[in-house]
Amino acid sequence: MEEKILLVEDEENIRKFTRINLEREGFTVIEAETGELGVELAQSENPLVVILDIMLPGIDGYEVCRILREKVPNIGIIMLTAKTQENDKILGLERGADDYLSKPFNPKELVLRIKSLIRRLEKPVKNTNVITHGPYQLDLYSKAFKKDGVYIELTPTELSIITLFMKNPGRAFTRNELLDLNWGEEFVGDTKIVDVNIRRLRSKIEDNPGKPKYLETVWGTGYRWKKD
Rank of each mutant, 00 (worst) to 15 (best):
L201M: 12
L68T: 06
R200N: 14
G220V: 03
I161P: 07
E23T: 11
K126A: 12
S142V: 06
L201E: 05
V64G: 08
I131F: 04
I67D: 02
E40S: 14
L52H: 08
R15E: 12
L164I: 09
N208Q: 10
R120T: 02
P124H: 00
D180K: 13
D10F: 04
P57K: 04
L140H: 01
R120A: 07
F173R: 01
L179K: 14
A42T: 06
N46T: 12
I30D: 13
E33N: 13
N13G: 05
D139P: 08
F17C: 07
R15Y: 04
G92K: 01
K71L: 14
K147G: 09
E12I: 13
Q137C: 09
L91F: 09
L112R: 07
G61M: 00
R171Y: 14
T217K: 12
A32H: 08
K226I: 05
L110D: 01
S116T: 04
E153C: 07
F27L: 10
T191P: 05
P209A: 01
L117A: 01
E122F: 01
V150C: 04
Y136P: 03
K83Y: 13
F187C: 10
H133Y: 10
K192R: 15
E31L: 14
G222L: 01
L22P: 10
L93F: 10
K83W: 11
L68K: 03
N208M: 07
E216V: 12
Y223L: 04
L80D: 01
I75A: 03
M55L: 14
E177N: 10
K211W: 07
C65D: 01
V130F: 04
R200F: 05
D60L: 06
I78S: 03
K147E: 03
L41G: 10
I118E: 00
I51C: 14
L154A: 12
N208L: 09
K143S: 08
S203H: 11
R200P: 05
E11H: 13
N46F: 12
I77H: 00
N46M: 10
R202S: 14
K167D: 12
N208E: 10
V64A: 08
I198M: 15
I59P: 11
F165H: 03
T191W: 03
R224N: 11
R171V: 15
N46C: 11
L91G: 06
C65H: 00
I205C: 06
L179G: 08
R199A: 15
